[in-house]
């Protein structure tokens, strides 16, 4: 029987794993050459944090681009409307 702390620990590990896997789709690995000791756990925390922020960044961009597309679709109609006004001035 796991204690509440044990369950939380397992959940946290799963959470970190999911973050790293999802982040790997957006980020790739390179060798690190450090002067100060980067720490193993703290380096993994950075990787998880990077994945989280990167996921948000891409999602936000995707959402913005959706809005931009719909705005771009609206614009030709708007121009056409303006054009028709011009046309009515110069029949």
């Amino acid at each position: 029987m796991e204690s509440p702390t044990g369950y939380m620990t397992i959940l946290l590990r799963i959470f970190a794993l999911v973050l790293i896997i999802s982040g790997a789709a957006l980020l790739f690995e390179r060798m690190a050459y450090a002067y100060a000791d980067p720490g193993t756990g703290l380096l993994a925390v950075q990787a998880a944090g990077s994945a989280l922020v990167a996921t948000g960044w891409y999602l936000r961009r995707k959402i913005y681009s959706l809005f931009r597309q719909s705005t771009a679709k609206d614009e030709p109609e708007k121009l056409l409307d303006e054009g028709s006004v011009e046309d009515s001035r110069h029949p």
């Binding site: 690995e29 980067p38 193993t40 756990g41 925390v45």
Partner: peptide
Amino acid sequence: LDVVTLAALLGRPGKTGRGSQKHLSA
């Protein structure tokens, strides 16, 4: 949560191997 708990759990011996020498790039 990140700087203590996650770092401690992910940093324990055997949790990271060669991966600790690598880092993510965008």
